[in-house]
């Protein structure tokens, strides 16, 4: 059964970060939006792609490490968000998704 989740948070000393996630046993897709900056522009799609296919129960720290690796490999610069805040918001969105499914 597919789930949809949504979460939004203001990153500490950073920008507003919103995540929409669809998942079942694995993460099917993630959309990241907000008032942050990504250089180059295409970098955000690479970040979204980096978590696709991960197990849905992947720990936040592991997810953060995967995102950090993708960013480093592709020479992406994030301003106002970082791998930790992205992973944390994805986890929050997944928790919200489960909750809304159960209700």
């Amino acid at each position: 059964m597919a789930h949809q989740g949504f979460a939004r948070q203001k990153v500490r000393n950073g920008k507003l970060l919103t995540v929409r996630v669809s998942f079942s046993e694995k993460i099917d897709g993630v959309e990241i939006t907000g008032d942050f900056f990504v250089y180059p522009d295409e970098g955000l799609a690479l970040v979204e792609k980096s978590v696709r296919g991960m197990d849905a129960d992947t720990h936040r720290k592991e997810m953060s490490a995967v995102i950090a690796t993708a960013i480093e490999k592709s020479g992406i610069t994030l301003i106002g968000i970082d791998p930790d805040s992205i992973a944390e918001t994805i986890r929050m969105a997944m928790q919200n998704g489960v909750a809304s499914y159960r209700t």
Binding site: I32, F37, V38
Partner: peptide
């Protein structure tokens, strides 16, 4: 809106 924002949001 910014490049990475959602218009509908």
């Amino acid at each position: 809106i910014g490049r990475f924002q959602s218009m509908r949001d």
